[in-house]
Design a protein around this nucleic acid. Structure first.
Lengths: 110, 110
DNA sequence: CAAGATATATCGGCTTCCGATATATTGAGC
DNA sequence: GCTCAATATATCGGAAGCCGATATATCTTG
């Protein structure tokens, strides 16, 4: 799963959101480590819908502008939870190794 | 940073390794969640060397076969540590949200 | 000689990312 | 009315990156 898909799914946890709203939500929950660009978003959404991880919730017209809301599916929630565990395990594996690593040294004992 | 680059850097923490050895090491430390394929490895290594995150350590001839050992640079270690923090933060953000999510429900209160 | 493991390296197809672009509405400033 | 910016959806093309296939070469097993 790509980081963009990961943030899209996370943005949809709890409440359906429309495309443009996902951008802002992803930026917020990543605290500036934003990865989602408008040129990426709709391709990601199409793929997630195709994979059954996300589905269309409803369409609204707000102040003349169309809003297409998407919703996380059960599969999407499960896939996201699995990805969280995977990333946590990966980060821990690297973190454990880094504890024994000394900066500015190569093989030195310090 | 891609997951393949992440595992390559992690495999090089602590001791220099040659390309083929990185494959096995990455498979071990990911406990089967292996991402690194032989067709990916050398492209990843070239990019990491180009970015200064990894450098050539030495070349050996073991039983007639060339072994090219790579070593993590200081920049590489710092970049890996930053990536670990990033992924940990991402996983936590998603995890926090998922705690409030109920499977097999859409808007239900349970 | 053939097959499999080790070891490096390249190629092409595919997926994905993302800036640019297009379309359309609302609101602010002149 | 016109321009600029924000909101909102959508597509296109270049670029990056992944990975199966392929090539080369050695050693071991049969």
């Amino acid at each position: 799963m790509t980081e963009q898909a990961f943030f899209t799914l996370t943005a949809l946890v709890g409440a359906p959101r429309h495309g443009y709203g996902i951008l802002g939500e992803a930026a917020e929950l990543s605290e500036g480590r934003v990865q989602l660009k408008v040129g990426t978003l709709y391709g990601v959404l199409d793929r997630l819908v195709g994979d059954g991880l996300v589905e269309l919730d409803r369409e609204e017209v707000e102040q003349g502008r169309l809003r297409r809301y998407y919703r996380l599916t059960d599969s999407g929630g499960i896939a996201l939870a699995a990805e969280v565990e995977r990333q946590t395990a990966n980060a821990r594996a690297a973190s454990d190794r880094l504890r024994t690593w000394r900066p500015a040294r190569h093989g030195g004992v310090g």
